[in-house]
Design a protein around this nucleic acid. Sequence first.
DNA 1: AACGCTAATCTAAACGTTTCGAACGTGTCA
DNA 2: TGACACGTTCGAAACGTTTAGATTAGCGTT
Lengths: 343, 343
Amino acid sequence: MLHVAEAARVSVATVSALINGTATVSPELSQRIEQAIRDIGYKRNAIARSLKMGTTRTIGLTVPHITNPFFTDVVSVIQQAFDRAGYAVMLCCTDEDLNTQDDQIRLLLDRMVDGLIVARVGDGAILKGIVEDANVPVVLLDRVCEGVDTDTVVLDNQRAVFDAVTYLIDLGHRRIGYISGSFDISPMHDRMAGYREALQAAGLPIESELVRFGNFHEVDGYNATMQLLSLHDRPSAIFSANNPMVIGTMKAIRDIGLSCPEDISVACFDDFPWSDVFQPQLTTVAQPVKAIGEQAANLLLDRLSGNRDAPPRKLALKGRLMIRNSCRPIGAPLGAVAQSVSA
Amino acid sequence: MLHVAEAARVSVATVSALINGTATVSPELSQRIEQAIRDIGYKRNAIARSLKMGTTRTIGLTVPHITNPFFTDVVSVIQQAFDRAGYAVMLCCTDEDLNTQDDQIRLLLDRMVDGLIVARVGDGAILKGIVEDANVPVVLLDRVCEGVDTDTVVLDNQRAVFDAVTYLIDLGHRRIGYISGSFDISPMHDRMAGYREALQAAGLPIESELVRFGNFHEVDGYNATMQLLSLHDRPSAIFSANNPMVIGTMKAIRDIGLSCPEDISVACFDDFPWSDVFQPQLTTVAQPVKAIGEQAANLLLDRLSGNRDAPPRKLALKGRLMIRNSCRPIGAPLGAVAQSVSA
DNA sequence: AACGCTAATCTAAACGTTTCGAACGTGTCA
DNA sequence: TGACACGTTCGAAACGTTTAGATTAGCGTT
């Protein structure tokens, strides 16, 4: 900018005024300055600007795994929303690891992001400390977090799983295996609560041998399913509380020589693009991904535009059970699929 | 830092020296300073540091669509690599749009990223101009780019498609539909070349009615497939040059009342997590995603660590044909699948 | 002619670091 | 005793912006 100013024989203040339109500058000087900008190929240094202005027009986004289709979609939607608003987004993947997550939030805060969208945090206390230090608006995604009282957008997880498990029960299933993610994040509590609630509502016992835990990865789903399938009295249906794990479930079923839905019914959390293309077409709980991402972005954008003092807003969206053909009625002839019963 | 210096009754220079270890500071002062840092809860301002140092320890990454499984994986790998190296990554999705891409590269350059990984650029000339202005190392991913002579990592696309189409021919297919992405990016040229080369090598005619173009999205694959299937003499196999489009292909096949592989064989580019779980298990060309991402990251990291003058390095990696059961031998009994023939 | 008003422009301080070179105190050596 | 080196600490400039407030010029009023 100094060079531009010299070339145009004006002060840097005038150049800045012209660029930002913060003051009127005469047509004559405007032209000289614009010419100089072109000649020199000047580009404003956003770092210097950020330092002075105290804003980077950049937000931080952390998710556990970008390869989980839910987060893939959410990231995509959020990225688009901030792009439209002229913000850049820094993406971090925490790999479901608490320390990694803390490090990355610090990394983002160090870089003076203007705001933060955090999906699936672990321990609330740590996040709370980090976030209170840096005085930056935060929106929590996909989970509530004890002690961190801030904007939040989540799914009504309990209700969603309740609906899915009730659907299985209505099909005649009595022994329903449940594969949960590890319990340190709230959605897994709520989803489990939905499972138990559905069983209780139907007067079915809650049997601990039917509940398995995994760490969200395909291999965990595989192992959990293997255990469930080798039970003496094996379940007739399995619900997986997480999407990547259901891949493991399907592979375990195949490897053990069974087939879905003939021998065992399967449903899971999170829809994905291929779910209705191949056989079996998985019955899933679809999250309103687009709405979730957009709401989160709007919440943050609103804070960013100055609305800092409004009380925290908590949004809970509804999931939707996508009934396909991976669950079959118990007792019905083998050819029957779910739709014919649930109609 | 000023406050810390005051509280510890030293100069800011000393604080900086201690923090960065750039000069020895006496144990006594060290302790006072560290105490002050804790008391105040001081965090170094990375923006000010970047301004002074001329480096942001941030890189920019642009991809067309994060929802394309190839890019999802590549982004994931790249993110991890830079995370390990202490870099943040700014992610942009260009939606296959040239203007969007230019805007976003400018956005990233404005923010003084230290380096750039660009996947799937359109016009080389524009990129070239942008990149030459900002003197920042760039690595090109997934495509070569005329006129931009810089580090590049791509797949040997022609060979990969040649292998896949040859496989189809070996199965007895004679009319093979081909769905290409739009032609303004190099992989689509190369993949098409592979298709033509395979046909020619087998002495088969190249029929333009069998070749369709789409814009990389599911809906494009759907439309293209609909056209291919309503041909008077419809193809017995379809190869889709892009992964999202093959979803459309499968849906079109289903909607038209055909089934794969009984009525029509399908293969496509890019493997995905579900490919061997459901039926049909799609035969795909798998890219070595992990290697591609890591190589790209290493190339950039190397430049970032000072190796600026080395001549541009061009890496071409080999794809791998994952033979599953979505393609059947022509003329063989209906139950037969690909493996039994290709053994 | 002196005055005030407005519009255009400029000067200089500030943002929070890093770093160069100077300054200071202390001990060593001639 | 003075010169010198060494280890530690500090002052101040610099990075490239923004912006408050000062300055200037032009013009209409009284």
